[in-house]
Design a protein around this nucleic acid. Sequence first.
DNA 1: CACGAGACCTGTTCGC
DNA 2: TGCGAACAGGTCTCGT
Length: 280
Amino acid sequence: MPELPEVETIANGLRQGGSDGSPSLIHQAILSACVLWPRSIAEPAPSEFERRIAGQVITAIGRRAKYLVMQLSQDTLLIHLRMSGNLLVEPHNAEIPTHHRLLLFLQGGWRLAFNDTRKFGRAWLTNQPDQVLGRLGPEPLDPAFSAQEFYRRLQASRRQLKPLLLDQEFIAGLGNIYTDEALHLSKLHPLLTADQLDETQAAVLLDNIRRVLSSGIRHHGASIDWVYRNGDFQNYFLVYQRDGQPCRKCGATIQRLVVGQRGTHFCPVCQPTPEGGRPA
DNA sequence: CACGAGACCTGTTCGC
DNA sequence: TGCGAACAGGTCTCGT
């Protein structure tokens, strides 16, 4: 489910508290933890995770790329939601749903639950978060990340734009939805290679990456199926999962192809096939 | 270096 | 209705 805007929305919700009366998690103490699916804990071992997190206080909640970052009094708790993860604040004694993988029991009768149907998500409890986050590329919404720097990085690669933008070491936080949307707004075919872009196209692409991410955040993310249903950005998709439907810009039929084993959606008229490329 | 396939998982949807 | 295939917001590892 979650790309950058969805994780940002979740982090904001945990920081601010919910409309259902659930509290902000800032300054809350974690009384105890219960690991329900051991492989959801990347490090340390589940038993040590439970022992070590107990008694720590949540001091800050933020996001880096698609990672939720919870600063605790001694350690940092990192959570990556991967395909189907979600975080929920619930009454501590509520019935435990099937796909809950980790529970953190808090003061005041509440618990933080990590729910993850497909079990791809992971949590790290560490005092060296950079060992997990260190390889990530630039944060796209960071104003210090310049168009010139983005162009320089594109020039250094011969990879196709779609898989390159999904590579978290190249730029951190984009996923399948926002990549397809940003390429469409930029009128760039997903199979163009990075070094084919000129400086102007690079600047336009970065601008549109920021535009779709900001719009996604403004709409509290996208809710496509049963997983995460807080946002409505899905109502504004221009290409993602719109194959067979008319392009909202030109009326041509949106196409789908598979690139790097990911469904890829684009308008064949707005985003013409690159020179020498294979037609879609 | 770049790419493709397979793993990791469960659930929903689609075609016959 | 049943049943298998295809597909899903992500990332890692291995082979070519």
